[in-house]
């Protein structure tokens, strides 16, 4: 019998009919553990974790994926994915991932790194991993400052942005311009896919998932390194509500860090 024809008492007495008739549109991905995350309310890290997990599920690679966690707010990322994981020293995730991938070339290895990790202390590591054309996937979370240590200025901090270590705003005459690392890496022959996405709206989140998928496919198909930079909110250190923080990403970060694909290997172009 169709569910709409049942009366409330009938449904109450036959919950299996009601549940069986419902189509699941969204459920928790298998690649996420049941752990509660330690992230602040409204922080985009949780969204990005979920997108990675959905992609791992959809590509069917969970049992052969290895994560490399960073130092920064995502230092506990290894607690949140149902895949094997290693914890790298600050900025050294690409070096550790290189070792893992070379020893176990049939595994899918990804690093998860923030901007303080990848674009500051770890710049050297990511540049040389790209120069070597390592078959890795890099998820680069840019929230414009050092989150875990209390919101200090990072190389990615916006011109004029107030942080705990730039109380008058970042002065480009003193501290230079923000680092556009994904555009720089896109120029290197070892990179098969380089893109920047954002988490500030549902449509942008869906596009970020697609880019994460292509960054994994670049590795799976042996094309080269795949990197996705994802603009991410840090409500806590920006002193904003979660909704205001997404507006900050949209209005302040996106103009400085334009979204888009900087390199798509021709073998991936049909899927982009």
């Amino acid at each position: 019998m169709a569910i709409a024809e049942l009366t409330p008492p009938q449904i109450a007495s036959r919950p299996e009919v009601a549940l069986a008739a419902m189509q699941v549109v969204y459920k928790r991905p298998e690649a996420l553990t049941e752990a509660y995350t330690h992230y602040c309310p409204g922080c985009s890290h949780g969204v990005i974790h979920r997108l990675i997990a959905e992609v791992i599920d959809e590509l069917g690679i969970r049992e052969r994926t290895i994560a490399v966690a960073p130092v920064g707010c995502a230092v506990l990322a290894y607690e949140y994915f149902t895949v094997d994981a290693a914890e790298a020293a600050h900025g050294r995730a690409p070096a550790m991932a290189t070792g893992i991938k070379r020893v176990l070339p049939d595994r899918i290895v990804f690093t998860y790194q923030g901007d303080g990790d990848l674009a500051s202390i770890g710049t050297n590591e990511i540049v040389h991993a790209c120069a070597r054309g390592e078959l890795l996937t890099v998820i680069f979370v840019n929230n414009s400052l050092y989150g875990m240590t209390g919101g200090q200025m990072a190389p990615t901090t916006l011109p004029g942005q107030v942080t705990t270590s730039s109380p008058y705003g970042r002065d480009i005459r003193q501290q230079g311009w923000p680092l556009h690392i994904t555009e720089m890496l896109a120029m290197m022959p070892g990179v098969a896919y380089a893109a920047r996405r954002s988490t500030h709206a549902p449509a942008e989140i869906r596009k970020a998932k697609k880019a994460i998928e292509l960054a994994f496919r670049a590795q799976i198909e042996g094309l080269g390194l795949g990197i996705v930079e994802i603009l991410s909110s840090c409500p806590t250190n920006w002193g904003l509500s979660p909704m205001e923080a997404l507006a900050f990403v949209r209005d302040k970060m996106v103009p400085v860090y334009p979204l888009g694909d900087f390199k798509v290997h021709q073998a991936l172009a049909a899927r982009a």
């Binding site: 569910i3 709409a4 008739a21 419902m22 189509q23 699941v24 549109v25 969204y26 459920k27 928790r28 991905p29 996420l32 509660y36 995350t37 992230y39 309310p41 409204g42 922080c43 985009s44 890290h45 949780g46 969204v47 979920r50």
Partner: peptide, 10 residues
């Protein structure tokens, strides 16, 4: 950000 929802359609 915290995967709170399971979504169903009738």
């Amino acid at each position: 950000p915290d995967v709170v929802f399971t979504v169903y359609r009738f």
